[in-house]
């Protein structure tokens, strides 16, 4: 259940950004969660609803975009999107690929009342 620690870090980030922008409240938080980031989206969302209560995010809507894996193939040069947890290029079946998206957890956008 590391989702609680992750949400704590996220809310801290929102508070810092909110203060920097003289926000009265944060009304929407957009995050991007990679398929291979090791986070369970349902738990993350539940953790956010639990932890947001006292702070600047108290009334914030939490939107998650689940990011599939994006592979850059070094064999055929094409990029491909994977919804399975594999790094095999779907064009040429090579495993000489690089994951260019889908492994990270990112805060993407905040909407705030100023």
């Amino acid at each position: 259940m590391h989702e609680y620690s992750i949400v704590t870090a996220l809310i801290e980030q929102c508070e810092t950004l909110g203060a920097e922008n003289q926000a009265k409240a944060i009304t929407r938080v957009e995050v991007k969660i990679g398929m291979l980031s090791g986070v369970e989206p349902a738990l993350l969302s539940q953790a956010f609803e639990t932890f947001k209560l006292d702070g600047i995010c108290a009334n914030a809507q939490f939107n998650m975009q689940i990011q599939p894996l994006v592979l850059q193939c070094h064999q055929c040069g094409q990029t491909s999107e994977q919804t399975e947890r594999t790094i095999i290029c779907s064009h040429c079946q090579s495993n000489n690929t690089q994951i260019i998206d889908g492994e990270d957890m990112m805060l993407m956008q905040l909407e705030m009342d100023t």
Binding site: Q13, L17, L110
Partner: peptide, 27 residues
């Protein structure tokens, strides 16, 4: 109730901030 409130620009001065920060950046 909140959705209608959110979309009504008369009631609030909304600011959208694109950030793109790693959530575990501090770590």
């Amino acid at each position: 109730h909140h959705d209608s409130l959110h979309t009504n620009p008369q009631l609030n001065d909304k600011k959208t901030l694109s950030v793109i920060h790693k959530i575990l950046d501090k770590n």
